[in-house]
Design a protein around this nucleic acid. Structure first.
Length: 896
RNA sequence: GGACUCAUAGCUCAGUUGGUUAGAGUGCCACAUUGACAUUGUGGAGGUCAGAAGUUCGACUCUUCUUGGGUCCACCA
């Protein structure tokens, strides 16, 4: 016989040891499960590749939410018997990690990466990354994540690097990757180009200047770019400027003397904005760049890569642009060319989301993915994409989701997906940072060689640029399982993966790129389902950030409340794709529930051990002896069905709430209380607890495993037990049980409520009398008389009696009942009570009568609904009648 | 400028093809507590479902508009 469990669950005493047992079992690896006969090798597979956390530090609570959701899916599928694989990894996060280390380097040593040189700097980044990696892995394990560590990968390791080089070469050979001069987002601070989605725009108040430019007045927020402006552009339909013709030239006085300007008509100009006329700076503005491109105009560089003015600026050459701006305006003022200045102008300032450098557009040679170029596909396994036909990457992206070969949950994010994909622009791949995969291109004179390996011969030099981190990330559905052009068992078994679970904030960064890269390289989708979760915010709904000091560290709260409580607080009370608010209080309330489950188990096990019954692990549906037994067995079966359905449809919050309501509300508050009365329930208690632990395991792996160990010993792991199976029953039977139990519950609650209203001491027992028309529930109450008496604290129950003097009446299921409260009945109070109840029932009856007398309702509504309403009316009327009788009785009493 | 999303009890949220006297958790109030449960139990108060119009026999649910939060996209100099 085992020892009694401790009174309270202390997570710290169990969690680490349990995780170790899981790891030592090696059951996180599906191959081991098959080998040990736990999983059948012919069952379906279920696979997830963990979105690899960036090695930029430690995990935040958002990662913990991601781990919790994925672990629920994984543990559920593993228990269901699927060959279940969850692959861990970490991401080098090129730009983010380099920026972080550069910042540290500057703060600690006041040095830049250039002071150290490429090799030394990279060593420093790698050390930092390694340190981050180790912390992240520890945290991930602490959260209970059942990841297959034998398959762990790093986005910058040798295998992933080979995949990057192969993919690049393949796409280059197909003409999908090209090198070209385009306008890019240059960050002078980081000395790198960044992609459009890495740029954030914030509104900022600036001055907006109106300058005289020949016969025109032009507006600009950036006078420092205007040196080279020699084209003046207006809308072709703008009647104000109809007399000027496209291509006309004129001479005018400008910043550094006379220039010749050319008139250009282009629809990109908004006649409503400013004066409807502008000059363009194609080298430093994207709009201007495209205008210049359309008309074949000259492009001249004005600002260098450090943000300083070039020779073209004359006396301002070498000056930083921000320093030069007021001086240029001053000079133009002296020349009488400033018309006016709008000081309240709001413009969108572009900054690098990593590091915050001010973006200065520049024309530069970079590597790009051409998303619109058609290519002949040869490896397609996708429906609707035929081999030998031509498609562009963009078309395949559209098709994959439109044809539902990839399902996005919640569905509304499909709109965001298409909004992005339909307007897709070429993807700029190259970055001038050092940390990351190198562009696999080599130069020798004017020759460019793109390949997996460096070319033979002297004098070749590798491109110094690195690749956008999302280029390698775009292959993460398959590179952890096998390489490009390589068929491994893992790829055969686990790819496409079942679901990509990630935050909605990286739908465009990552999800789109994964679909693009994988459909091209493998001819199949990377995953079947995309499940997007929301962001975790603080209790006031703000984003968590260091500056607000509102960060909740998963390790802190895990130590304080236990990992299971943290997981529950992240899983419950949130909807897919919606942000959730988290607070200490919320986690605390789930810690309470964890402890409740512990005590439920403690009591249940104790109860069973009082009898000669021996606890079983594999237990069939037991025989019910009482209504309560029938009820709880029916209920647990029902919960299995509901929870399984909700998990299958990714409704983690609802599934958890259903389980909690069942466990706390039905099982603990009712069934266990009844079990104390009825006794002799070892088998059913064993059955219930067994199933409850299994159902909770995906949500609360530690406490359930700890209890399981107490019940069945160290040699059994709940983690690989079989998920409960829903048993088909006749619905009529279940409904009858439900109705009977409902009636019993309602009577007990009513009596408790009356006792509370009349301030009857909990210890004091009272008597219940049911009048003579109690036939319909006579048997029900007779059969459950002990339960009724104990839970409602009744001395006696008398059937078919008359109303005792001084008793209060109530109606339940059409039966009038009297609670004998001799000496405590307060006529005034009771009158008030009844009146209050009448006041709620009367309008209800009226509304039902009105509804049913409405012939349109009776004709148009389905017969079933009409019947339902009729029954409601009959019940309510009966109740109202009895309330009136009671009221009259009270009035006669008062008259005495 | 184009979209998306949210608005239900003090707080956090359910409410899935339109038919409920609108629910839960938490907080609050009252009572109880050697009892599996420091972290418990029982009971209670608390909502014109943001506002307006429409469709319908019937709207928290569908449509349109308004108001107020949040988010994404976009080359307004």
């Amino acid at each position: 016989m085992k020892k009694e469990l401790p009174k309270a669950y202390e997570p710290q005493q169990y969690e680490d040891a349990i995780y170790q047992r899981w790891e030592q079992s090696r059951f996180f690896n599906p191959d081991v499960c098959v080998k040990k006969g736990i999983t059948d090798k012919n069952t379906p597979t279920f696979s997830i590749v963990l979105p690899p956390p960036n090695v930029t530090g430690t995990l935040h609570i958002g990662h913990a939410a991601m781990l919790a959701i994925e672990d629920v899916l994984i543990r559920y599928h593993r228990m269901k018997g699927d060959r279940t694989l969850w692959v861990p990894g970490t991401d080098h996060a090129a730009i983010a990690t380099q920026e972080k280390v550069e910042r540290l380097l500057w703060n600690e040593d006041q040095k830049t990466r250039h002071d150290l040189g490429r090799d030394v700097f990279l060593k420093r980044v790698e050390d930092f990354a390694q340190d981050s990696h180790d912390k992240i892995i520890n945290q991930t394990k602490k959260m209970g994540s059942s990841l297959d560590w034998s398959r762990e990968y790093y986005s910058l390791d040798e295998k992933r690097n080979l995949a990057v080089r192969k993919a690049f070469k393949k796409m280059y050979d197909a003409g999908l990757i090209y090198r070209g001069d385009r306008i890019v987002n240059w960050d002078p601070k980081m000395q790198s180009n960044v992609s459009d989605i890495e740029v954030v725009r914030t509104e900022e108040k600036t001055f907006f200047y109106y300058f005289q430019y020949g016969p025109f007045v032009i507006g600009t927020a950036r006078p420092e770019t205007k040196f080279g402006d020699k084209y003046v552009v207006m809308h072709p339909e703008d009647t104000r400027y109809a007399k000027y013709k496209h291509g006309d030239t004129f001479e005018c006085e400008w910043i550094n003397g006379k220039i010749t300007a050319t008139i250009i008509k282009d629809e990109a100009v908004d006649p409503e904005f400013g004066t409807g006329v502008m000059t363009i700076t194609p080298w430093h503005d994207a709009t201007d760049f495209f205008i210049a491109d359309r008309h074949g105009l000259d492009k001249e560089q004005v600002i260098d890569l450090n943000g300083n003015l070039l020779e073209i600026a004359g006396e301002f050459a070498g000056m930083n642009i921000l320093e030069a701006r007021p001086k240029i305006v001053e000079k133009l003022t002296q020349k009488g060319l400033v018309v006016r200045i709008d000081e309240e102008y709001v413009s969108a300032k572009a900054t690098n989301s990593r590091g915050g450098g001010l973006i200065e557009p520049q024309i530069m040679k970079q590597w790009w993915v051409d998303v619109k170029k058609k290519f002949v596909i040869e490896n397609s396994q996708m429906e609707g994409i035929e081999n030998g036909k031509e498609y562009s990457l963009q078309e395949i992206l559209q098709h994959a989701v439109r044809s539902k070969q990839i399902e996005i949950i919640p569905e509304r994010f499909e709109k965001q997906y298409f909004n992005w994909v339909d307007n897709l622009l070429d993807w700029c791949l190259s970055r001038q940072i050092w940390y990351g995969h190198r562009v696999p291109a080599w130069y020798h004179g004017d020759d460019v060689y793109v390949g997996v390996e460096a070319p033979e011969g002297e004098g070749w030099q590798q491109d110094s640029d690195t690749l956008d981190t999302w280029f390698s990330a775009g292959m993460f559905s398959f590179t952890p399982l096998g390489g490009v052009d390589e068929e491994t068992d893992d790829l055969k078994n686990y790819h496409p993966t079942s679901v990509l679970e990630t935050g909605y904030d990286i739908l465009t960064f990552w999800v789109v790129r994964m679909i693009m890269m994988t459909t091209y390289l493998r001819g199949e989708v990377p995953f079947r389902t995309v499940y997007l979760h929301g962001l975790v915010r603080d209790e006031q709904g703000r984003k968590m950030s260091k500056s607000l000091d509102n960060i909740i560290d998963p390790l802190d709260v895990s130590a304080k409340y236990g990992t299971d409580a943290v997981r529950l607080s992240l899983l419950l009370g949130s909807a897919p794709g919606n942000d959730t608010k988290l607070s200490d209080e919320k986690i605390g309330s789930f810690r309470n529930f964890t402890n409740k489950l512990w005590n439920i188990s403690r009591f249940t096990i104790g109860k069973v051990q009082e009898t000669s019954y021996k606890i079983q692990k594999n237990i069939q549906l037991p025989q019910a002896h009482t209504l309560a037994d029938q009820y709880i067995l029916m209920k647990i079966n029902h919960v299995v069905e509901i929870v399984t359905g909700l998990l299958e449809s990714y409704q983690f919050s609802l599934a958890g709430e259903q389980l909690r309501d069942f466990t706390w509300g039905e099982f603990a508050d009712w069934y266990l209380e009844i079990a104390k009365v009825e006794g002799n329930k070892s088998e059913i208690l064993n059955y219930c607890l067994n199933n409850i632990l299994k159902l909770w395991h995906p949500y609360m792996p530690f406490v359930t495993e700890a209890i399981w160990t107490e019940m069945y010993g160290e040699e059994n792991l709940l983690m690989v037990e079989r998920w409960p199976v829903f048993v088909e029953t006749t619905t009529g039977e279940a409904q009858a049980i439900q109705e009977d139990f409902d009636t019993l519950q309602k009577i007990i609650i009513k009596i408790r409520s009356l006792r509370s209203d009349y301030k009857i001491e909990p210890r004091k027992k009272v008597s219940l009398v049911l009048n003579e028309d109690a036939n319909n529930i006579f048997l029900l109450l007779q059969n459950n008389i002990d339960v009724l008496k104990t839970l409602a604290r009744l001395e006696t129950v008398e059937f078919g009696g008359k109303k005792p003097d001084g008793a209060i009446s109530f109606v339940e299921n059409g039966v009038e009942m009297y609670l004998n409260l001799i000496g405590v009945l307060d006529i005034e109070k009771e009158t008030e009570h009844i009146n209050k109840e009448i006041a709620t029932v009367e309008p209800y009856v009226n509304s039902l009568e009105k509804k049913l007398s409405n012939t349109e309702f009776v004709h148009n509504a389905p017969a079933q609904v009409v019947e339902q309403e009729k029954k409601k009316l009959a019940d309510a009327k009966e109740k109202l009648e009895k309330l009136h009788t009671q009221l009259i009785y009270l009035l006669t009493l008062r008259d005495f």
